[in-house]
Design a protein around this nucleic acid. Structure first.
Length: 856
RNA sequence: GCCGAGGUGGCGAAAUCGGAAGACGCGCCAGACUUAGGAUCUGGUUCCGCAAGGAGUAAGGGUUCAAGUCCCUUCCUCGGCACCA
């Protein structure tokens, strides 16, 4: 097969060379070869889940962008940490194990090997000696160790930091009091239990199995939770200074969902007790005409009257069967049942009915609301359906606006002492009143919930926890027993026990006479919460990362007002919230406990866009528009794939694949090849072109070259790789036009192209060195060139001449010609004289070096 | 519904500060070389028009000497969230 250039030979050769010479290995402080004089730069990719399907062309997009940045920074004299690894726990491997009976680690290993092969075929400058795998025992060990840090910590409300549990013990708190404060704690929480499958499902699996006809219900189980809610305020505040896309910051803010309002206590009309509600609109308290409890609210049992008992029980049972999705999706139509109980509105003594309805969520606020149907859309819909009273307590500012369902700020009305107050003022007044009367207080609530950290799965990190069968208490196992690995099983099929597949391993569970192991495992998020730290010191057997390595790679740099951490983190928007929030949470705990040196893990975040199929639709097997990188590498080479993915458009945009586009950049690379090489009579035999000579470049070539240096440098800094490539094309076209191609200019072009097309440029660099001698080392190890601004200045500039804003003529003048002289020259032009017809112009705008606009 | 991103040639896209719209690439057209070309090279290519010229950055309006860029209104596409009191 005839190829425009022999990429199929040179690419594997250079990949082997880089691997054999450990070209991209970077030393830690204290290790041989470490150069302390260089600044550090940490470039991180979101590591992949190694699926059986292999790499997708979407993966190399972000990876190529970080690779270019890595290589560019290296050439600029940085110590660059650029690692890769595997987020290898996950459901597909477990499902494979269930089907085949083979331990998931084998399937995982095969997939990892395939992913590594595919990534290495793309020539990425990873330091493979730092590869991590979240399922490896020496990694699991430290994930479990971090869990124990959480388990042995509490949140100190005065310092707002994580502190060791030991402090509580020293203060003499009881075991119960301590357990109630641990950052890792146990609570009853509903899981998606499928009786027909005999297994627990992840939220994202529920729909899929329902469609296949399986049943899924909510069932409360003892679950491990992480107290992320305590960190809500810090997670919110520390987001501010990060160099992240604004859209991601907004997503995180929304997820945390801070809202200010008041907690109000409504006494029950009959009997003892009261109902606490949270509201952001305490100013509408006079308009509360009924109350609603979440169906799961603990008070329901107690307050329901005997007449309503049956209806309430039936409603609660129906709600229990619904998944979260059903409750939100289908519930446009409000449902609910009266409990028969009544409460008293503290502001006006009104006796109002208490209902239960699933539009009130147990997990938010207090799980109970005061309903103000006049000024809340949901309450209004409910009140209309069940014919509950609706009263106005807010007057819209604008005339003629319907007050029913008016939810914006206005003026209080029919609200006693609040009447006439604007909403914000009314809120302040009523909160002061509630506090004074002791029936409520101002309060901040977050949408963020504590992190449900247990999974009833096999292929995840087991909890380093045992349960005392006599006391029912949990205990941490000693750190010396880590890693705690899951036992081998005969088969991985569901057991029908909602505690998960590990219950089958009876020997493993039995820890001692009285102690039994926890059978839950950690979620996939656990490993990805701290992998960026392990990369800093991946083979350390004493610590999860040494203090020195952590401080060096994650520490702040002096030249910028940075907060430290990873300098550049690139990945998809699908991790906008969960991964990035969980990792930030763990990082803060580790920071509080003194294990890491910065409060935030990722200083700068960039999201690459989606690569769509050639038809503009999302790539998917069912649409048959999936592009396999292996095929592209086979047909056009890795350099072409890399270059095309960067040339398609801006990194952060979604853009469609185009085979013709790959051919375009492939042709460009072939032209660069032929700038240097000449094909001989025998097909595929190449020698240095006779047109390439060691001569001084012409001024035109020099200028084109330095323009390219300037543009490519600025564009890589800005991650505008598409326009950087365009500049390289312009420069190479210019060079190709010359009869004689000067060696020095060609070499500079190769250096500029090297981060984008490393195989081609290392090959040509090497060929030139063999023929002409010159600089030693690989092309990718050359210093990055600097442009000479003096070569770019023009002594003459073209000025655009406009009449009334429309381009009419052009004029070439000396660069520094004063505005008055330019104006005189322009007014003397025949076209201008004609347009003015002897009259003086109304206005003349002169923008020196650019244009003159004459307004007649 | 809410939030976010975006709408520029036949296509992917360029366009520091408001100052020549369409760089670069694909595709297409013509030519050269050639036994051949789906290789390579040269030239052309926003639209209408033979031309002079005119129009043109989703649509409409506004600010300005000058608007793809700033402001207002509307429409469309994509992504995320979705009873959070």
């Amino acid at each position: 097969m005839r190829r425009p250039y022999p990429f199929h030979e040179i690419e594997p050769r250079w990949q082997q060379h880089w691997a054999a010479h450990e070209t991209f290995r970077v030393a830690n402080p204290g290790e041989p070869g470490f150069d302390a004089s260089r600044p550090k730069f940490y470039v991180l990719d979101m590591f992949p889940y190694p699926s059986g399907a292999g790499l997708h062309v979407g993966h190399p997009e972000g990876y190529t962008a970080t690779d270019i940045t890595t290589r560019y920074k290296r050439m600029n004299g940085f110590n660059v940490l650029h690692p890769m690894g595997w987020d290898a726990f996950g459901l597909p491997a477990e499902q494979h194990a269930i089907k085949t009976g083979e331990h998931p680690r084998f399937n995982t290993q095969r997939n990892v090997d395939n992913f590594r092969r595919q990534l290495q075929a793309l020539g990425f400058a990873y330091d493979w000696s730092r590869e991590v795998n979240t399922t490896a025992p020496d990694y699991v060990r430290w994930t479990q160790w971090i869990f124990l840090q959480l388990y042995h910590s509490y949140f100190d409300e005065t310092t707002k930091t994580a502190r060791p549990i030991r402090e509580l013990e020293e203060r003499g708190l009881s075991r119960e009091e301590i357990d109630a404060q641990r950052l890792a704690f146990v609570a009853e929480a509903p899981v998606n239990w499928s009786p027909s499958l005999g297994t627990v499902l992840a939220n994202e699996e529920v729909d899929e199995w329902r469609e296949k006809g399986e049943t899924v219900e909510r069932r409360p189980l003892k679950q491990w939770m992480l107290r992320i809610t305590k960190f809500a305020e810090r997670l919110l505040a520390d987001l501010e200074p990060l160099d992240w896309p604004e859209s991601i910051k907004i997503s995180q803010r929304n997820w945390i969902g801070r809202s200010e309002g008041a907690q109000v206590r409504f006494a029950l009309a009959e009997g003892e007790g009261s109902i606490e509600v949270f509201t952001t609109r305490p100013d509408t308290l006079f308009g509360a005409t009924y109350m609603v409890l979440a169906p799961e609210h603990p008070l329901v049992e107690r307050i329901t009257t005997s007449a309503q008992r049956e209806a309430v029980a039936a409603y609660r049972a129906a709600c229990a069967l619904k998944s979260d999705l059903d409750r939100t999706d289908l519930a446009k139509d409000k449902t609910g049942v009266a409990t028969g109980a009544f409460a008293v509105n503290p502001v006006n003594g009104a006796r109002i009915p208490v209902w239960i309805a699933d539009y009130v969520l147990m997990g938010y606020g207090t799980g109970a609301i005061m309903a103000v149907p006049g000024h809340d859309e949901r309450d209004l819909a409910f009140a209309e359906k069940f014919e509950l009273p609706i009263v106005q307590v807010v007057q819209p500012a604008k005339e003629g606006v319907e007050w029913r369902g008016f939810v914006d700020d206005g003026t209080a009305i029919h609200s006693g002492f609040l009447d006439g107050l604007p909403t914000p003022e009314a809120k302040r007044r009523i909160i002061a009143w509630l506090e004074e009367k002791g029936v409520g207080q101002g309060r901040v609530t977050y949408k963020l919930r504590d992190w449900l950290f247990s999974r009833q799965r096999y292929w995840g990190e087991p909890f380093p926890i045992v349960w005392d069968q006599t006391t029912g208490r949990h205990e941490a196992i000693p750190e010396s027993e880590l890693p705690l690995l899951a036992p081998e099983l005969d088969d991985y099929k569901p057991t029908g026990d909602p505690r998960g597949p590990l219950v089958k391993a009876t020997d493993w569970i039995r820890y001692s006479e009285t102690l039994q192991r926890e059978t839950n495992t950690m979620p996939q998020w656990a490993g990805s919460c701290w992998y960026y730290l392990r990369y800093c010191d991946p083979r350390n057997e004493q610590r999860f990362v040494s203090a020195e390595a952590e401080k060096y790679w994650m520490g702040g740099r002096s030249e910028a007002p940075v907060r430290g951490g990873v300098d550049l983190y690139v990945g998809g928007t699908e991790h906008a919230v969960l991964h990035l929030l969980y990792a930030r949470f763990w990082h803060k705990v580790l920071f509080d406990l003194g294990h890491v040196s910065t409060a935030e893990p990722f200083q700068r975040l960039v999201n690459q866009g989606l690569i769509l199929g050639e038809n503009g639709q999302k790539m998917s097997k069912s649409l048959g528009n999936v592009v396999n990188p292996d095929d592209v590498v086979r047909d056009y080479g890795a350099d072409s794939l890399r270059l095309f993915e960067m040339f398609m458009g801006p990194l952060t945009d979604s853009k469609p694949w185009s085979t013709a586009g790959v051919q375009g950049v492939h042709r460009f690379l072939a032209r660069v090849w032929r700038l240097v090489m000449d094909e001989q009579a025998t097909e595929g035999t190449w020698e240095i072109s006779p047109a390439l000579q060691d001569v001084a470049p012409s001024p035109a070539v020099l200028k084109a070259l330095h323009a390219a240096i300037k543009k490519v440098t600025a564009d890589i800094e800005a991650m505008a790789f598409n326009t950087a490539i365009s500049a390289l094309m312009v420069a190479s076209n210019e060079l190709g036009r010359a009869e004689v191609r000067p060696l020095s200019a060609v070499r500079t072009l190769l250096v500029l192209l090297s981060p984008f097309a490393p195989h081609l440029t290392d090959e040509l660099w090497d060929a030139l060195a063999r023929k002409f001698g010159g600089p030693t080392g690989l092309c990718c190890e050359q210093p990055w060139p600097k442009h000479d601004e003096s070569l770019l200045v023009e002594d003459e500039v073209e000025i655009v001449v406009q009449i009334a804003g429309k381009m009419r003529d052009k004029l070439t003048v000396k660069k520094d010609l004063p505005a008055a002289e330019i104006e005189a020259l322009v007014l003397a032009l025949p076209k201008i004289a004609e347009a003015l017809a002897g009259k003086a112009p109304k206005k003349v705008i002169v923008v020196p070096g650019r244009l003159v606009n004459v307004v007649p």
